[in-house]
Structure formats: C-alpha cells, structure tokens
C-alpha cells in the first residue's frame, strides 16, 4: 500500500505493514463496513418488501410525509438562524476575551452535548412549569401562541444544537491570526470593523461548517420533542413521524423518512467536512 506523509513531507513512502498498521486499518475497515451495512440494510429492507420507485414516490408525496418534511425544514432553518445569532457572539467572546469564570462557562457550554437529549426536553417542561416559565407561557397564550406548536419544536431544536455550533464557531475564531486583527486596528478599523471585515471573512468556512452541523443536529432532534411538544399532527417532524409510523407497523414509510434523514445528514457532513477550518478534502 502507498500513502503520503502528512503535510510537512511530500515524499511518498511504501508503508511498512507492521502490527499497528494492520490493527488500526482493520478497525477502520470494520467501522466503514458497519456504517455502510446499516445504510444498505434500509435499502434492502425496502426492496425486500417490494417498495420500488413507484411506491417510494407515493410515500414521499403523501400529505402527512410532505407536511413533516416542510415542518422539519422550516423549524430547523428558524432554529439555525437563532443558533447563529447566539453562536457567533458567544464563540467570539469565548475565543477572544478572558474573564472571571471563563473556564467554567467554556465547559458549561458543552452541557447540552453531553446530556441525554430527553433530559433537555424534561428541563424545558420544568422551566415552563416554574413561575417565570408560567408567566412567559401565559404571555404567549395571550397572543394566541401555544408552546405545543412550531415554536416548541424550534425551542427543542435550538437547545439541543446550539452548543455544537458555538464549539465550531469558537474553533474557527481561534484559528484566525490575531496579528491580522492587530494590523486592521492600526490601519484605522474600529473593533467592530475588524470583526466585520477581517475576522468574519477569515472564519467564514468554519462558521458555515458549524451552522451546517448544528442544522443537521436540529433536523434530527427527537427525545426533547417527544417530551415537550408530543406527537400531535400539528407538531410532527421527520423523527417523530418515523417513530409513529414504526409504532403502527408502517415500517416502509418509516424507512423512507429515515433514508431522507440519512441523505440530508450525509450531505451536511460532506459540506461541513469540506468547509471546516484547517481541513483539506482529500
């Protein structure tokens, strides 16, 4: 086997087939095969039950599936906008400033990543059961807005995904050379102009990659939705629709929706990988 040494060297070497090489490459191969098998299993299952292109088209054009797809896209795009509005300033503050409690807050940001998603749903329920949350809920109801609606879906998607985006955005700001920002300051820029004209353009790829990762996460949120907004027809999105279809034994529809979700996730991953700072497509 032939491979290239990383970045610093362009020399092509013949690999020594030592034990470590064999073990690690074998693990890699097993993992890749496992992921491919999971995807292929869905496709074979559909073929086994005679779900051809015609049936696929029927399922995809059914009002219920189309409604879920539309709701998933609309809510996740709104969630993404809110996530970016949070992640860009928060990521910048964490990257550029050192303040009292910085380390604790930096760790705390990761909390939604490590918590089981369903816990976040329970926390949302608990919050809107508290006096402050109740006051907000009543205020919203006054204007005819219910939490068991697209608003609740957006809340769940936001709370589960925002940390992923903050982490990615912070990393891309960390990668921007501070000396370029200093140069911009001496050339007449204010702090905000430096941020707008130098930092953001240089961190752009990382910001887009972080946004895509967060969006892919948001569109797949399930646990908190089950707890916080339930599975009513007005609040069904792709993951909850899959679960409902499985429950009523309609596995073909569930698998078709699963394949759509997988396709979206795969495209998002490829784009995010391509744009991530410091990564080269190879």
């Amino acid at each position: 086997m032939i491979f290239r040494l990383p970045e610093s060297s362009t020399e092509v070497v013949k690999s020594k087939r030592n034990g470590l090489f064999v073990v690690t490459i074998a693990c890699l191969a097993i993992f890749v095969v496992m992921v491919c098998l999971l995807i292929l299993a869905d496709i074979f299952y559909l073929m086994h039950w005679g779900v051809g292109l015609k049936k696929l088209g029927q399922i995809l054009s059914s009002p219920q599936v189309l409604d879920c797809l539309r709701r998933s896209f609309v809510t996740s795009i709104i969630a993404l906008l809110l996530i970016l509005m949070t992640a860009v300033p928060v990521g910048y503050a964490l990257s550029r400033y050192r303040f009292f409690g910085h380390s604790i807050i930096n760790t705390f940001i990761d909390m939604p990543i490590v918590l089981p998603p369903v816990v976040l749903g329970i926390s949302l329920l608990a919050f809107f059961g508290s006096p402050l949350g109740h006051w907000i809920k009543v205020g919203l109801q006054h204007y005819g807005i219910s939490l068991v609606s697209s608003l609740g879906i957006v809340m769940c998607q936001y709370i589960v995904s925002v940390s992923y985006c903050i982490r990615a955005v912070k990393a891309s700001f960390d990668n921007v050379d501070r000396r370029l920002e200093h140069a911009a300051l001496t050339l007449g820029c204010s702090q905000f102009q430096t941020f707008r004209w130098v930092t953001i353009p240089l961190a752009r790829n990382g910001l887009i990659a972080g946004g895509i990762m967060a969006w892919a996460r948001a569109i797949g949120v399930f646990g908190p939705l089950m707890v916080f907004v339930g599975t009513g027809s007005r609040v069904q999105v792709m993951p909850t629709n899959m679960w409902l279809e499985l429950n009523v034994g309609n596995i073909e529809t569930a698998l078709v929706v699963a394949l759509i979700t997988m396709t979206i996730a795969s495209i998002a991953l490829v784009v995010a990988h391509f744009l991530a700072p410091g990564r080269k497509w190879s």
Binding site: H182, A183, L185, T186, L187, G188, C189, S190
Partner: peptide
Amino acid sequence: PGKRQVGY
C-alpha cells in the same frame, strides 16, 4: 490604534 496615524 486606528486614530494614532501610525503605519505599522
């Protein structure tokens, strides 16, 4: 920095 008229 930007108001000091210094080329750096």
